[in-house]
Simulated assay, not measured.
Amino acid sequence: MAQDGGTDAGAPGGAVGTAVGEAWDALVATARRTVADGLVVGTSGNVSVRVGDLVLVTPSGVPYSRLTGDDVVAVDLDGRPVRGTLPPTSELPVHLAVYRSTDAGAVVHTHAVHATAVSTLVDELPPVHYMAAALGGPVRVAPYALYGTRELADHMLTALTGRTACLLRNHGTIAYGATLDQAYDRTAQLEWMCRVWLAADSHPTRTPALLTPDQLAETAEKLRGYGHPG
């Protein structure tokens, strides 16, 4: 497929080829980080990044430690293969739905333990910490649907309305951002907030204090003005 003035996105040379190679290296590093940080076991999660009209995505069933620069998997926004011989992740419909509906530059999906546990307990993560504002507000839980299906993607998009992350019931997390680093950071923050809520809610006689919508709005405003709080 020709991109950007006729340069072949599948070719190793040229500006597009260089951008794809660099993006792939960053994607693999992020995927390996999800394993190292305990957000993923084996190949249970997946990561994608957008380069122009291409979406680079982790392949299905391949341990991230084995991926090299020669294993690039790229599709267009309709899911048609553009580069690579490995099959893309089975969650490709979810990733593509995010790119078609938002300005996302990268998407991270995990089966993080605490977030997955919370997804089985509530319809929305209670706002126990102000960093919920960094994700757009209290994080919703998308209803369960079989992985890799359009139904799951539709449920996810509803849960993501006005948000940059959500939980998938009995499944895991989805977070997106302008960059891989931002998408990963939002994923890690979500898992941490789920862990905090589970710990607080486990007290036998006390109920966790929750932030009000006004308090979250105040945090959101400060985040817009000053970046991440200390």
Rank of each mutant, 00 (worst) to 15 (best):
T158M: 01
D185N: 14
G105A: 10
P229C: 02
L54N: 08
A145E: 14
R224Q: 15
K222G: 03
V51L: 08
Y130A: 04
A220Q: 14
A145T: 00
V55K: 06
P81K: 08
T58G: 09
S202T: 14
V113M: 09
T212W: 08
L27M: 04
G172Q: 08
E191M: 08
T68D: 10
L54C: 11
R83C: 05
S48R: 03
R186A: 10
A220R: 15
T30E: 04
T212H: 09
C166W: 13
L152C: 04
L157I: 07
A134L: 14
A159E: 06
R163T: 03
P93V: 01
D185S: 13
M1E: 10
L190S: 09
N46V: 01
A178R: 15
R83L: 15
P204Q: 01
R50E: 03
T161S: 07
R169D: 00
A142D: 04
V16C: 03
D154P: 01
V75P: 06
G162I: 07
G61H: 12
R50Q: 05
P126K: 10
D53Y: 03
H111T: 02
D78W: 06
G5A: 10
P63K: 12
V40S: 07
S60D: 05
W24T: 03
L216W: 02
A31N: 10
D4H: 04
T179A: 10
L167N: 00
G225Y: 02
L167K: 06
R206S: 01
P93D: 11
T120H: 08
G105M: 09
D214L: 09
A142S: 05
S119I: 11
A74K: 09
V41F: 07
V107Y: 13
W24G: 02
Y99W: 05
D53H: 13
T43S: 15
S48I: 04
H228N: 10
T149C: 04
G52S: 11
V118P: 11
H203K: 00
V75T: 13
T205H: 15
T179E: 12
V72E: 11
G137R: 07
P208W: 11
Y226K: 07
Q3T: 10
W192F: 13
V98H: 05
D78L: 08
S90D: 01
G172L: 11
D53F: 03
R33Y: 04
P126A: 07
T205I: 06
Q3S: 12
A15W: 05
V47A: 03
A188G: 02
T110R: 14
G69A: 11
D76L: 09
A31H: 12
A115T: 03
Y226L: 11
V82A: 05
G172I: 15
V73H: 06
A199Y: 10
E191G: 06
L190I: 14
E191R: 12
